[in-house]
Amino acid sequence: MTKEEIKALIEAGLPDARVTVYGDDGQHFEAEVVCSAFAGKPLLVQHRMVYATLGERLGREIHALRLRTRAQ
């Protein structure tokens, strides 16, 4: 999986999000996600929303994903 594929999946699941993904080894990634849908939601809920966009790829194609999320 590439960082571009991860970015596209997150953007498809959270259409108004601004997403930046880092990582070049194909398994370990870091993503910064800024999305108005995060407003008023705790950090754990924000992260779960991002994880939901990636589904079963987490733990399989994506070994590790470090997240930074915030509302815009």
Rank of each mutant, 00 (worst) to 15 (best):
20 T>R: 08
20 T>H: 05
20 T>A: 04
21 V>E: 05
22 Y>A: 12
22 Y>N: 08
22 Y>T: 09
24 D>I: 00
24 D>H: 12
25 D>R: 02
25 D>Y: 03
25 D>K: 02
25 D>H: 04
26 G>A: 07
27 Q>P: 02
27 Q>K: 15
28 H>D: 06
28 H>N: 13
30 E>V: 03
30 E>L: 05
30 E>K: 08
32 E>C: 02
33 V>D: 13
34 V>Q: 11
34 V>A: 09
35 C>E: 11
35 C>H: 09
36 S>W: 01
36 S>Q: 14
37 A>E: 13
37 A>W: 00
38 F>T: 11
38 F>Q: 12
39 A>Q: 11
41 K>H: 08
42 P>Y: 01
42 P>H: 04
43 L>I: 10
44 L>R: 12
44 L>P: 15
45 V>S: 09
45 V>P: 13
46 Q>F: 04
47 H>R: 15
48 R>Y: 05
48 R>V: 04
48 R>S: 10
49 M>A: 13
49 M>G: 11
50 V>P: 09
50 V>S: 09
50 V>E: 05
51 Y>A: 15
52 A>I: 05
52 A>P: 15
53 T>D: 10
53 T>N: 10
54 L>Q: 06
56 E>Q: 10
56 E>C: 00
56 E>K: 03
58 L>M: 15
58 L>W: 02
58 L>I: 14
60 R>A: 07
